[in-house]
Design a protein around this nucleic acid. Structure first.
Length: 482
RNA sequence: GGCUCCGUCGCCAAGUGGUAAGGCAAGGGUCUGCAAAAUCCUCAUCCCCGGUUCAAAUCCGGGCGGAGCCUCCA
């Protein structure tokens, strides 16, 4: 089954063919670590995580590289505001980022290079660009890339250099030869961290780091480069210009990353969530009150290229939906215990994988899962004698649900544990005391034994007013919180 | 101004040439001491107008509405 992906450079969906059969090099632009991760980061890295998981599930050996940008204007200014060392601040937020990504179920990348650890590579690449005539040093300690020298500039974003020029900001006293030229190296200003270079002390520009890090970890040419839609221009356009000019003689944009994938934004009230607009939620804020797997489920409910609106209500829906999935799995496990599933995968699991083959259509997969879960529930609740075949079918369902779930990065915890975690967050949101709830339920059980239904219903109503819903089942009464 | 993209049931959301997945909500059953949960049934012709085609939500043209990029940004 061929994997299709929407390639920004091609402008359409194309068949994915690894450069080296069986192997994939994937680079995702990582965060600039000057603050905690927000939901936009969560979405983006959850998406690339699914890409990695699915490619691996299809038998491909994936090397996943995601960098940390730990040298940057904003890091420096934030550090100065707080009187903190920039490196320490960046390192602190990098740790915070990893913690958040773990919480939403992302696998760690195979390599996580940092700009501060890539200086020799960056300097070498800039030297090469200067030597090949694509970059120039005006003599003030800066080095710029000469955009006009690169014929394919703007191809990724389908922009014409002359159109860009008319909109470009021209600063007075600029040392750039062309307003579009961008900095590869910035001469050090007082009080800034800096590194030695042939042009004096300074630090790299924003874009060159990725060119250097991909070269170091994935080679001159690799399969997939990914990032948020907002990086198409200028960041990724500039990366192409740098890497291709430095490393390819024929100057073909394809000689860097074969394919480019970009994810859509998380929006709040139909507006892009971003730090500059101030309308962002950090992952930590959200996970304080909600479960990471539920957030992940919400993020996977929309195709990765489309915008996704975020609200508490939608997250609550996802949370209830996740509880349903785990409850169903728990039920299936209980019934199927000890049964041996058929080896062959269910048709729906194959359909789910096929949906992932088609540009990682996670939303379609969730639709397919929904039908499978409904059917499993119907089976599990059916009255009467259960045959070995019934139990084998549920065992197969549970196995395949976890297998498909594994490609999405969900449903990997034991259901009971997940349900407890979900309830735990709900308890926090409601400010409830679980011991008190349990005590009231015991009281109600006693009333029910005595057939005192008036009293039992009164207890139930009381709990309901606290947001606690109870369910009487064969093995006792369970409860959950809205 | 240039360049991308989007507009599908009350809400969320797949589908991008072959006659509208799925979820939530809603209404009606089953189950239950009553509930809850689960399950079953019901529930859209795809922003508007033209065109291409045997056939269009899907392609083309024109509107209207919304978003993004062109400056830091996932």
């Amino acid at each position: 089954m061929a994997i299709q992906l929407h390639d920004t450079l091609a402008g359409e969906k194309v068949e994915f063919r690894p450069i080296v059969p069986g192997k994939v090099g994937l680079y995702a632009c990582g965060p600039t670590v000057y603050d905690h991760a927000h939901l936009g980061h969560a979405r983006c890295y959850v998406v690339w995580d699914v890409v990695v998981r699915h490619l691996r599930a299809r038998g491909l050996e994936v090397k996943y590289v995601r960098n940390f940008t730990d040298v940057d204007d904003k890091i420096i200014s934030r550090a100065n505001e707080r009187g903190e060392d920039p490196a320490a601040l960046a390192s602190r937020f990098a740790d915070s980022f990893l913690e958040d990504m773990d919480a939403v179920g992302c696998l760690r990348p195979d390599a996580a290079p940092r700009v501060t650890g890539t200086m020799p590579g960056i300097v070498a690449l800039i030297e090469r660009l200067v030597a090949r005539g694509f970059a120039y040093a005006p003599g003030n300690g800066d080095v710029y890339y000469a955009v006009r020298k690169f014929p394919a500039y703007g191809q990724l974003s389908r922009r014409d250099v002359d159109d860009l020029r008319s909109g470009a900001r021209v600063e007075t006293g600029d040392v750039k030869r062309d307003p579009l030229d961008f900095a590869l190296w910035k001469g050090a200003k007082p009080g800034e961290p800096s590194w030695d270079s042939p042009w004096g002390k300074g630090r790299p520009g924003w874009h060159i780091e990725c060119s250097a890090m991909t070269l170091e970890h994935l080679g001159a040419q690799f399969d997939i480069h990914s990032g948020g839609k907002d990086l198409v221009f200028p960041h990724h356009s500039n990366e192409i210009a740098q890497s291709v000019a430095a490393l390819s003689d024929r100057l073909d944009p394809r000689d860097f990353a074969r394919h480019w994938m970009h994810n859509g934004f998380v929006e709040i009230d139909q507006e892009k969530m971003s730090k500059s607009l101030g309308n962002f939620f950090t992952v930590k804020d959200v996970l304080q009150r909600h479960d990471g797997e539920a957030l992940r489920l919400l993020l996977l409910g929309t195709h990765y290229r489309n915008p996704i609106n975020f609200s508490d209500g939608l997250l609550g829906d996802a949370e209830r939906r996740l509880a349903y999935l785990h409850e169903t799995l728990e039920k299936a496990d209980r019934i199927a215990e000890g049964a041996t599933p058929d080896e062959a995968a269910t048709p729906w699991a194959e359909a789910a994988r096929a949906a992932l083959d088609d540009d990682f259509n996670t939303a379609a997969v969730l639709g397919i899962l929904a039908e499978a879960f409904t059917a499993a529930n119907a089976d599990a609740d059916r009255k009467g004698k259960r045959t070995p075949a019934d139990r084998a079918a549920l065992a197969r369902f549970a196995r395949d649900a976890r297998s498909v779930g594994g490609e999405l990065g969900i449903l990997q915890r034991p259901p009971a544990q997940a349900l407890l975690a979900l309830r735990g967050k709900a308890v926090v949101r409601r400010g409830l005391d679980p011991a008190l709830v349990e005590a009231r339920i015991a009281e109600r059980a006693e009333a029910r034994r005595a057939k005192d239904f008036a009293r039992s219903d009164a207890v139930r109503d009381e709990l309901l007013s606290l947001g606690v819903t109870i369910q009487d089942g064969p093995s006792g009464t369970s409860w959950k919180v809205e």
